[in-house]
Design a protein around this nucleic acid. Structure first.
Lengths: 194, 194, 194, 194
DNA sequence: GATGAATGAGGTTTCATTCAT
DNA sequence: AATGAATGAAACCTCATTCAT
């Protein structure tokens, strides 16, 4: 079973995760204290330690929610022919994964220095690298590689840096995806087949 | 002889800034303690407080180094005709500004959550917004606006996320700029003159 | 067996209050550090913060012990006819209240500048004012009003400035009360009934 | 000469005293830092140390201003016959001394705990005791002694606790003196001549 | 499934003071 | 007559964590 302790796992665990993510996202990981989390939940700090071994553990548990879908996406991409259609479908699926875990993602984006030193840092970095490797062609030009990297980062940045663009969220999200798809297409076009 | 008045008038202030930036960059703002900074300089913590009113003040003083050039760039752009050539020159100059303050910029990029809650947050945000406003045409399509924003963020991300691209730094920097210029050109092209 | 629920449920909170009052009284509020309090109790400073939110909070908790009885006294006086007998009974009861919280009162008397800037300052001031207002007749002469004020302050000063008067404490206390009663009687006598 | 350093002593010294007294009086001795004093004078902290050896020294120099007149008063009283007229004249002169050094006096009154531990503490205490000894008759009743003490403290308290009595300052001051004179007269009256 | 009580380490900041210039 | 630079000590306070109950 996926639930280690109890068939019907206490919902406190999930409430802790929710509040923690909210606060981490709002003020950053370091500035969010376990006291704050506990207070907002109206439990004691000690209660948090019943559900999680450490503060970092709360974050790890959150990151796992993002890791799964991305791993699936990578596995899928590896099973496909390495062509433009696959790459673009990757971006589409990545867009879904990101928007399904938007608050966590915002947190990662805004707390890179912290995340880097935590155990989830390596795990995130390796997944982004994996995606990047699959988007770019090994021997393409530097600017083609930059285009692929930019496609990825445009999607990351697009999740929270579009406040000063008018338009409804879905429209913006679509536009971001379109730009990313475009960048990858341009990168691909510049590669001389051979 | 080079310094006319005081032969060896304290360079401690600058040394504090240097070490602070180095450590902030390395471990993040919150995880860098004043004790660490002081120890590495072999002065007491109190000495830091002689030169800076608070920890945040050290950061503010560093940020001012970036703000100046960017403000000049904005002022210049405002004095120019609002056309593609101007926008592209803006990006070239922005690239210079960023690379001249690369460590500080890396710090800001990796500590957004922290910076947001500090006094420099607003100052940075408003400058990035200003640049963004000048790049995009008011009534262009959402995807054109996303392209402009992406141009900016590509430059930001490009400063530290290009480790897994081979090529010498200058070449990579040029490639990033090229991609950014391209994005702005594409955004401009999509606007029907009116 | 005396304490039904927790056989030895922490009396630390009360011990902190006791030690704090002792030290505040001895060296003043500002010169008493939390380290001293903690050391004398053989706990860590952090333990103090488990029981009290701030240093000031310790003092506030102490002041509450005095506020209660005085409030009762004021409430009682308000329910009585405003005549000399009531006023004199007020002074008697006030004397009791003061002597029941003598160390705290001594502290307040000797740390007025400190207390004034703390949250308890206003609370004390308003109670003393209330007492004063009830003692004096609204339109009596200035010297009658001074007599009432002096009655109050004689009781305050009497708590710690009688070392160079011989006699046992109870006798001195009685004498102070007598003088205060007298002063109020004189103030009352000077008012022409109208 | 009374001026140790220079015939025409710098006025900075006096300005330091003035500002220090003002701040000590306003926030208390411990809460007033040398930095504050220096900043308000627009000099550096080091400048204060040119004029005074320590922080306490500033206070001592201020207290000397009060000590002189009071010593004169005590000396005068010792040269007079010990009777009611002398005692009452003492109070009149003491009233003058107090009002001439009102801010310092307010400070002492409100910072007793601090003052007690400083070098000026003993000096003040001994003078107040001396005054008290001269007012009261050695073998009078406890309540007569309390009346004398109260006369003294009424004058002290009267300097700053009369805000809620209407009337112009001089009128209030006169009333306070009147009450004090009365108290001493009553004390005297109760002594059976022996 | 959680609490109450506490700790040890460390944080930022302030202070009175010194001393060469 | 005063400054600039620095120090050592100590202040208040917060944090993640532990553990018996």
């Amino acid at each position: 079973m996926a639930t280690p302790h109890h068939p019907r796992r206490s919902d406190t665990r999930r409430r802790i995760q929710d509040v923690a993510l909210e606060l981490f996202s709002e003020h950053g990981y370091e500035k969010t204290s376990l006291r704050e989390i506990a207070e907002r939940l109206d439990v004691t700090k000690a209660a948090l330690y019943y559900h999680f071994k450490t503060k970092e553990d709360i974050l790890v548990s959150l990151a796992d929610d993002l890791a799964g879908p991305v791993d699936e996406l990578i596995a899928w991409a590896e099973s496909q022919p390495r062509n433009l259609a696959t790459k673009q479908e990757m971006l589409r699926r990545y867009s879904d994964a990101l928007w399904n875990a938007a608050p966590l993602f915002r947190f990662i984006q805004e707390n890179q220095a912290t995340v880097r030193d935590l155990s989830i840092g390596e795990s995130i970095k390796s997944r982004v690298n994996a995606l990047n490797e699959m988007l770019k062609e090994p021997r393409s030009s530097v600017s083609a590689q930059v285009r692929c990297m930019t496609a990825l980062f445009a999607m990351h940045a697009g999740m929270f840096a579009t406040q000063n663009i008018e338009g409804d969220p879905q429209e913006k999200r679509a536009a971001i995806l379109e730009v990313a798809l475009d960048l990858v297409a341009q990168a691909e076009a510049s590669v001389v087949p051979g």
